[in-house]
Nucleic acid binder design. Structure first.
Length: 866
DNA sequence: GACGCCACGC
DNA sequence: GACGTACGTGGCGTCG
């Protein structure tokens, strides 16, 4: 879960200053506050592991509160010069820690923090506010804790709502009432004379707020107290107002931009040196050296000196291994390691090495196979892949590089980003340092294998790893390398045609708008629609007016410009993403070679990049025509597409053993009609088109785990109606309802849910107190086993197809996988025979309580496949 | 370069 | 009753 730290910059500086004796460095700069600050930051970073971080400062002298009350913060003692000179270095310190800073004229740090913590609360982040000012405790909530630094800086009280309740018997939001009554000397807030903490708490216990107390003055005991409250009622109200943190500061950034990354270690080191922070420098040195493992392998001059099980690694910095050749080879058996630039090696020696090994472990088989192809080596013998293992152990962990995976096994090596640099700092390392890096990398790959396999066994996923994901990686490697042929001339033609139409629509739109503007800019379009043409605002986004399709559709009868905009949108998307985008992806061989990501989608699905061939248009004919550009290898071949019919719902029927649903699939009734019959309690003949449409949407919702809100959006109905649909659905399929309940229980008990093949997905938010986070977690728990099992099944089919001797008799080639669909290139004269083979493989990939049904179509291009 | 909006598929 | 609501990739505009 994301964790946001907000520091009240000034108050913490004060605390640090007064908490430590005066120190200074050789050049005479006082450093005690800076040092205290640094220690606090160190502690927070280690203990809390924040993902987002901000230090807010008070800006100038005047704030909106001074306008309300001139004496605000009056009488406050001046900042001592010994502290004043440390404020600028503190800002530098914050910068080198990679922490964002912010201040805004007219507002205090409190208000910035209040605005952000409220925002963070809504977005479901956990927030910690660090301050030396008790005022901020009013911000405590279920997700926001205030760390109040008492004397010095290491002594911290943690203000949660429960702590405040215990301390004062108040809710966090009543802190301002407390201040209203008792005032605050340090901020020169008057309060009511004669009222201190005790009296204020007593009054608030009975009347809850300043206003409550003032309304019930007659019930207040004590003559003087009553008099003072009457006389100073305005002061009380104003004091409360002054103490109230303003939560709507016009902040011009998102919490996302506060992402915390310690990426300035060198600058930090320099600053510590300058400030003479010896202990912190030592810490940094220690982190640098002690953490990094020293491997005790020995470099050898020949691959043949390696014996037993080995780990193998081809290195190239570039992401796309299909177009970039490897530059270095590293291989190890754990004691002997071989490292060489590839230009000093013969392909044949590498191939000999690979084919003579019993067991070869790598990080990312598919990538290694792709890189080997540059050396004309087609080797399929890898039998261990720690990247795939890491993904299975926890799919939510981002797969970044070897260092990231190895760190989970207490092996710390330099990350790729660190070694190669990022962005402008990118370097091309060579020589001994680079070889040392590669040595650590291949050793880390090697060392991780054994413990990882143990974890996989412990979690019952070793089989999934060894017999599904690893073989699949090899199938995918072949598909990526093979590519799919694209007829560029068809795209060029479409481009001209669409451009002409776009130009026409564009002039029409400009004419109707009365001016020209960038239609692709939601900002400019919003201005035209909602300010110039005064159309009603349906929806707003964080940054302005929403101009999304559903909004435009609602405006359709309000102005004729809308239909042109909608058409423009459709065509512009086709043109930029597909017609032009795809042309740029065609390689020398007239093919497009997508890459599949096997370790990204949480459910176990694949994804596809550069380009994404899993989202080529199909629903609208205009877009579907893009598919005409995808063609078989020659005129004697066809493209064949086979897709599982309703695979997720069949999986659901199997997992839940719901009789009604099993019957529907066994008797081959249309499942949406059947669902409508059950949900609306009507006979088959009486199912209207609308009923079926609604039933289909509910089924869709079940499969994708959408909420009642999502369903209401899909169907254009109210959330309440959507909820009724879902409730009726669950009552019609009682075993499904029971499953949904029990899977949530499973998730709570185990912390994860799993697919039929034991693929896990951890659901930490299932325990969240945040309704949103928890609801989402529950839907994830319900949906992941279904979608994940469907993903497992098609993967099984792909691996089974790859193994099938019978299928090998045909010259059919697997080209693409699109979640529930496989696309092949097949010789025309083999297609019917091949279909019967591949259908059997797909339909029998797994045995369920309902049949798996595979539909198919083939044609002379992808568009003709229907 | 990062982020937001929008749109495409399953 | 509020909350902000399937996943993924990519193009474009905007801002720094």
């Amino acid at each position: 879960m994301d964790k946001l730290i907000l520091i009240d910059g000034n108050s913490v500086a004060f605390r640090a200053f007064y908490g430590l004796p005066l120190l200074s460095n050789q050049s005479g700069l006082h450093t005690n506050a800076i040092f205290g600050y640094a220690r606090l930051l160190e502690k927070i970073i280690t203990d809390e592991k924040p993902t987002h971080f901000l230090v807010a400062f008070d800006a100038g002298k005047s704030t909106f509160r001074h306008k309300q009350y001139e004496e605000y913060k009056g009488g406050r003692q001046k900042t001592p010069p010994e502290l004043g000179e440390q404020l600028a270095p503190i800002r530098r310190l914050i910068d080198v820690y990679g922490i964002k800073r912010y201040e805004l004229d007219e507002y205090e740090a409190d208000d910035i923090i209040g605005t952000l913590s409220t925002k963070a609360d809504k977005e479901g982040l956990e927030t910690i506010i660090i301050t030396g000012d008790r005022d901020l405790t009013q911000l405590a909530s279920d997700h926001t804790t205030i760390y109040y630094t008492k004397k010095g800086i290491s002594d911290i009280d943690r203000y949660t709502p429960a702590f405040i309740e215990e301390l004062y018997g108040l809710k966090p939001e009543q802190i301002i009432d407390l201040k209203g009554l008792m005032g605050d000397k340090s901020d020169n807030i008057p309060g009511v004379p004669g009222i201190g903490e005790k009296t204020a708490l007593k009054l608030l216990k009975e009347h809850h707020s300043v206003e409550g107390v003032l309304e019930h003055l007659d019930e207040v005991k004590g003559k003087k107290l009553k008099e003072n409250l009457t006389e100073y009622r305005e002061d009380a109200l104003m004091s409360k107002d002054l103490a109230t943190i303003y939560k709507e500061v016009p902040i011009d950034f998102d919490i996302g931009s506060l992402k915390f990354e310690q990426d300035r270690e060198e600058d930090k080191y320099e600053l510590f040196k300058e400030l003479e922070f010896e202990s912190l420098l030592k810490n940094m040195d220690a982190a640098e050296t002690e953490d990094k493992v020293e491997f005790e392998d020995e470099l050898v001059d020949s691959l043949e000196e390696l014996s037993g099980d080995v780990s193998f690694h081809l290195e190239v910095r570039a992401e796309n291994y299909l177009v970039n050749a490897p530059v270095y080879l590293a291989a190890t058996d754990g004691t002997h390691t071989f490292i060489k630039p590839l230009n000093e090696l013969e392909s044949s020696s590498i191939e000999d090495f690979l084919t003579s090994r019993n067991s070869i472990n790598v990080y990312d088989i598919k990538r290694q196979m792709g890189l080997l192809r540059h050396l004309d080596i087609h080797f399929k013998g890898f039998d261990s892949d720690i990247m795939l293992g890491s993904f299975l152990l926890d799919p939510s962990k981002k797969i970044i590089d070897v260092a990231e995976t190895a760190a989970d096994f207490a092996i710390n090596i330099d990350s790729d980003d660190y070694h190669y640099g990022k962005g402008k700092k990118a370097v091309t390392p060579t020589g001994a340092e680079h070889e040392k890096f590669l040595n650590s990398k291949v050793m880390a790959i090697h060392k991780v294998r054994e413990p990882m396999e143990e974890y996989l066994r412990r979690d019952e996923m070793h089989e999934l790893w060894a017999t599904l994901e690893i073989p699949l990686a090899k199938v995918l490697a072949d598909m990526e390398y093979r590519g799919i042929k694209v007829d560029a001339s068809r795209l060029e033609e479409m481009e001209k045609d669409i451009q002409k139409r776009l130009d026409e629509i564009e002039s029409t739109i400009y004419e109707m708008a009365g001016e020209s503007f960038n239609i692709n800019s939601p900002k400019q379009l919003g201005h035209i629609l909602f300010e110039k043409l005064n159309l009603p605002v349906i929806k707003k986004t964080k940054t302005g007016y929403s101009t999304a399709v559903d909004v435009l559709e609602q405006l359709q009868d309000k102005h004729e410009i809308i239909e042109h905009l909608l058409h423009y949108r459709t065509l512009a998307k086709l043109q930029s993403t597909y017609v032009i985008g795809l042309q740029g992806e065609i390689k020398e061989d007239s093919k497009i070679h997508t890459r599949f990501n096997q370790t990204l989608a949480q459910t176990g699905r694949l994804s596809s990049v550069e380009p994404n061939l899993q989202n080529i248009p199909i629903r609208i004919d205009e877009g579907r025509k893009i598919r005409k550009a995808f063609v078989p290898k020659d005129e004697n071949h066809v493209l064949l597409a086979l897709d599982y019919s309703q695979i997720e719902l069949r999986v659901l029927a199997h997992i839940t053993q719901d009789e009604t649903m099993i019957n529907a699939f066994t008797s081959d009734t249309d499942i949406h009609t059947k669902t409508a019959m059950e949900v609306f309690k009507v006979d088959k003949e009486d199912v209207t088109q609308n009923m079926r449409r609604n039933a289909k949407a509910v089924n869709f919702g079940i499969v994708y785990g959408i909420s009642d809100y999502g369903l209401s959006q899909n169907l254009g109905i109210t959330r309440k109606e959507a909820k009724t649909f879902i409730d009726n659905y669950l009552n019609s399929f009682p075993q499904v309802k029971a499953f949904m309940k029990s899977i949530i229980q499973d998730a709570k008990r185990d912390g994860y849910v799993k697919t039929m093949l034991n693929r896990r997905r951890y659901i930490p938010d299932i325990h969240s107190k945040n309704f949103n986070a928890r609801s989402f977690a529950e839907r994830t728990a319900m949906n992941s086993p279904i979608q994940g099992t469907a993903a497992d099944i098609i993967k099984l089919a792909m691996v089974e197809y790859d193994r099938s001797e019978e299928a090998k008799k045909y010259d059919a080639k697997l080209l693409l996988q699109i979640h529930d669909e496989l696309i092949f290139d097949v010789p025309k004269d083999e297609v019917e025979d091949f279909i019967s083979i591949i259908r059997r493989i797909m339909e029998n990939a797994i045995e369920l309580s309902v049949p798996l049904n595979v539909d198919y179509g083939y044609g002379s291009d992808w568009y003709q496949v229907k």
